[in-house]
Lab assay of single mutants.
Amino acid sequence: RRRVRAILPYTKVPDTDEISFLKGDMFIVHNELEDGWMWVTNLRTDEQGLIVEDLVEEVG
């Protein structure tokens, strides 16, 4: 499975499927959606939700 790491922190918009995260958080990518969004699991918090790919980098 594809893994990505947050390069910046992010605070979710209330009442959306987004998740908040810290710089350095690792995610497993489940689905890549339109307009650069990804459905992921945050490995630190075990939370699932949407993040935008501009805020993460690939992990080898």
Rank of each mutant, 00 (worst) to 15 (best):
N31W: 15
R3F: 14
P14Y: 07
V40N: 00
V59S: 07
V56I: 11
T45G: 03
K12S: 10
E47W: 03
R2Q: 06
R5Q: 09
L55F: 15
W37S: 08
K12T: 04
T11R: 09
L50W: 12
L8Y: 14
F21E: 00
S20C: 04
V56E: 00
L22A: 10
D46K: 15
D54E: 12
E53P: 10
G36Y: 04
D35H: 12
R5V: 11
S20K: 02
R2W: 06
L50R: 15
E18P: 02
N31G: 11
S20D: 08
E57P: 00
E58F: 08
R44I: 04
F21T: 02
M26V: 15
F27Y: 00
E32H: 09
V29P: 01
D25S: 01
L33E: 08
N42Y: 02
V56S: 04
G24W: 07
E32M: 13
L33V: 10
D15R: 08
E32C: 12
N42E: 01
D35V: 07
T45I: 02
D35T: 10
F21C: 07
F27W: 01
W39F: 10
M38H: 03
D54Y: 14
D17I: 08
H30R: 06
G24S: 05
P9G: 13
M26I: 14
P9A: 14
K23A: 14
V4T: 04
Q48A: 10
L43Q: 09
F27G: 00
L55K: 11
Q48G: 05
R5D: 01
T45Y: 01
V59C: 13
V13E: 11
F27P: 00
R3Q: 10
M26S: 07
M38T: 03
R2S: 06
E18Q: 14
R1T: 14
I19N: 01
L43G: 03
E32I: 11
A6N: 00
G60N: 13
E34R: 14
R44C: 08
Y10L: 03
R5C: 10
I7Y: 06
L50A: 10
F21M: 05
I19M: 06
L33T: 10
W39S: 04
D46Q: 15
V40A: 12
R2L: 07
G24E: 05
R44S: 07
D15W: 10
P9E: 11
D35M: 12
H30A: 05
M26Y: 12
L33N: 08
M38L: 14
V13T: 15
N31H: 13
E32A: 11
D46A: 15
R2T: 07
T16G: 05
E34K: 14
G24M: 04
D17M: 13
T45E: 02
E32W: 07
E18F: 06
E34C: 14
R2K: 10
R1G: 15
K23D: 06
G60F: 14
T11D: 10
E34H: 15
D46E: 14
T41D: 02
R5L: 08
M26C: 13
Y10F: 05
Y10C: 04
I51M: 04
I51T: 03
R44G: 04
E57I: 10
E34D: 13
D35G: 15
K23E: 11
F27E: 00
R3M: 15
F21H: 02
L8P: 01
T41W: 08
G60I: 14
H30C: 12
I28R: 05
I7D: 02
E58K: 08
T45L: 03
L55W: 11
P9I: 05
N31R: 10
E47A: 07
L55E: 03
D54I: 10
V56W: 03
E47C: 09
T11F: 08
D17G: 10
R3T: 13
V59F: 11
W37P: 02
P14E: 12
D15S: 09
E18A: 05
D25G: 00
V13Y: 09
N42P: 01
A6V: 01
E57W: 05
D17S: 13
L43M: 12
L33C: 12
T45M: 03
L50E: 05
K23V: 12
R2D: 04
G49S: 00
W39Y: 09
N31T: 13
H30K: 05
G60E: 13
E47T: 06
P9V: 06
D15K: 09
I19P: 00
